[in-house]
Computed example of a mutant assay.
Amino acid sequence: MNNWTIDSPQTLDIDNVRNLRLLAISGRFDVIAHQDPAETVTRLTISEITGDPLEIVNTAERLDIKHGKTDAMVWLTKDNPLSSRNHLVITVEVPAQTVIDAKTVSGEGLVTGLNSTVKVSSVSGSIVSDATKGALSVNTISGEAIVKDHQGALSTNSVSGEITASGWLESIKASTVTGDLNFDVLGPIRTVSTNSVSGSVLLRLPEELSCQVLANSLSGSINVNEESIKVIGSTTRQFGDPKQPMVKISVNSVSGSITVFNRLSRHEQEGVQ
């Protein structure tokens, strides 16, 4: 096991890292896959740091990077993370297959180019995921989250923050309280599962896909292309051409709505123009 305590800007190279866990209270983190697939080192570039020193622990192919205290008792003191002077700006360059778990309280975060299992979380900060492949989990309380050009399964959780995602999403599992969720699906997708209290869900599908919607709601609504139905209780409806590939959409809500529409074909787009 190797340990580092860092309190000033510097660069650090670490070998043999397969799992990365990162926690930054505020500031910004960028987790970037190496452009060269032959590159195996994990490179940390600390550009700015104030407050507590940065704690780094490397053991059994796992690298833990932590800035600031987040245990339960700290939230009850004047040094709780939301009033902390901790600030970190760090870039972590990793092999694309590195498993990532990155968290921030109020900072900004970016993960890009990864081909692995990735989890990124925020309390009130904004997070962006770009050009990732594999299983992606995005979680926020009140911050904004943007997912661009993802290929694979997507899981999202939000309280009041807005989440926008696009790409070749193979499956979507989404949960929100009052935040809005927006998904732009570019290719075939197996299943979509959403849970909402009052937040709205917008889902755009490829032109050729039909859908079967299983809904359970107290007073929500389902809007599919030009059809709209009010849901009280449980209902199952099929929309589109049954001969076309079908995606199963499961909707659970209190009063939230889900809107599904198919992307226009090229011929229809030309007609609109």
Rank of each mutant, 00 (worst) to 15 (best):
H87W: 05
I6M: 02
V111S: 10
I32A: 00
D180F: 08
E55L: 10
L20S: 04
L114Q: 10
E270N: 15
D7A: 04
D79V: 05
I258S: 05
V105C: 02
E108M: 07
H150M: 14
L110K: 01
K248S: 15
A102M: 04
I127L: 12
T156V: 13
N80A: 04
S221L: 14
K78E: 15
T194P: 05
G256M: 08
N58Q: 12
E93C: 08
G271S: 02
D13Y: 02
K66A: 10
S126W: 10
D101N: 10
V177I: 10
A165V: 09
I189G: 05
P81G: 07
V120S: 11
E268W: 00
L202I: 05
G187R: 11
R43Y: 08
T132D: 12
A145D: 12
I25E: 02
I127E: 04
L209G: 05
D71W: 14
D30M: 13
N139I: 15
K148L: 03
T98C: 04
I229A: 05
H87G: 07
M73Y: 06
P206Y: 00
L76F: 13
L114K: 03
L54G: 02
T140D: 08
Q244C: 01
R18K: 12
D52V: 14
P81T: 03
T77G: 14
S126D: 12
D180H: 11
T164Y: 14
A215T: 07
S265W: 00
N80K: 08
V272R: 15
V41H: 06
L154I: 15
K230S: 12
S200K: 14
I163E: 14
L44Y: 01
W75P: 15
T112M: 01
R21W: 06
E227N: 07
L154F: 15
I222N: 07
L264T: 09
T104E: 09
S121Y: 11
T98H: 03
G134P: 08
V192Q: 09
S121R: 06
L186Y: 08
L54F: 06
K148S: 13
N195E: 06
R85A: 11
A174E: 14
G179N: 13
L214D: 12
L76V: 11
I258H: 06
L181G: 08
S116Y: 10
I56P: 11
S221P: 09
A96D: 11
V74N: 11
Q97R: 10
S122L: 10
V41C: 03
H87E: 11
I189Y: 05
D149Y: 01
T91W: 04
A174K: 08
S200G: 13
L203V: 03
V231Q: 06
S124V: 06
Q273C: 13
T50S: 04
S175Y: 13
D180A: 12
L203E: 00
S129T: 15
L88R: 06
K119V: 07
G109C: 03
L44G: 00
T156N: 15
V231H: 06
V17Q: 00
F183W: 08
A60F: 03
S83D: 09
P53R: 02
T164Q: 13
L76W: 12
S217V: 09
G167S: 01
F29Q: 09
L54C: 01
